[in-house]
């Protein structure tokens, strides 16, 4: 049996908590607190610890999903949770004024996983902004990264599962590449 520890990261309100509750087998562990920074985001609550959900796969494998707090004063949690993590789903909120600038901090913080290909990007609210999918890809390429980019609605289970499928594929591909005999 294999266990995959995977993270969901990205800015406040991108939908990390929503994504995990959309796909977890059982009700996830939640650490929501009243959001007192309504200038930053209008939503009622924000994650201050982490979300935790699980998905059992066929064959006995299991996904352990950790949703990070988006606000950067919780960056210690990002470091703690990265320990032993195999990959990360980075969620973007395209309705924000500059969604790429928002992502920069998270890309930097999870750079190790990004560089070994263990990262996928999910763009939410694509239609509510003016940044195209191609802009994301080009922006990543500009940083020397080639990563799968999808548009998602984190409230839809199938969308989130697609992100995880892609991430697992990325992780497997990177592993096989690393294990392949050198010629």
């Amino acid at each position: 049996m294999r266990e995959y520890k995977l993270l969901f990261a990205g800015p406040m309100g991108a939908g990390k908590t929503t994504a995990i509750s959309a796909i977890s087998d059982a009700a996830p562990v939640r650490t929501e607190a009243l959001n007192s920074d309504r200038a930053q985001h209008q939503k009622e609550t924000t994650t201050v610890g982490f979300d935790y959900g699980e998905i059992a796969l066929e064959g006995g494998d299991r996904l352990r999903l950790y949703g990070m707090p988006g606000q950067d004063r919780f960056d210690f949690m990002w470091r703690v949770a990265s320990e032993g993590a195999l990959g990360v789903v980075l969620l973007a909120d395209n309705s924000r004024p500059d969604p790429l600038a928002d992502l920069a901090l998270y890309l930097e913080s999870f750079r190790g996983m990004a560089e070994r290909g263990a990262m996928v990007i999910g763009i939410g609210r694509l239609g509510s902004g003016h940044t195209s999918v191609e802009s994301y890809t080009a922006w990543l390429a500009g940083q020397g990264l080639s990563l799968p980019v999808f548009t998602v609605d984190v409230r839809r289970r199938d969308d989130v599962l697609l992100l995880l499928d892609a991430l697992l594929y990325q992780i497997e591909a990177a592993r096989m590449l690393a294990e392949a005999p050198h010629v």
């Binding site: 201050v48 610890g49 982490f50 707090p69 004063r73 210690f76």
Partner: peptide, 17 residues
């Protein structure tokens, strides 16, 4: 102080969870 504030809220929320 500010880092302790963030850590405190995390630890209390995780403990409650």
């Amino acid at each position: 102080v500010s880092r302790l504030s963030a850590l405190s809220s995390s630890m209390v929320a995780l403990s409650q969870a």
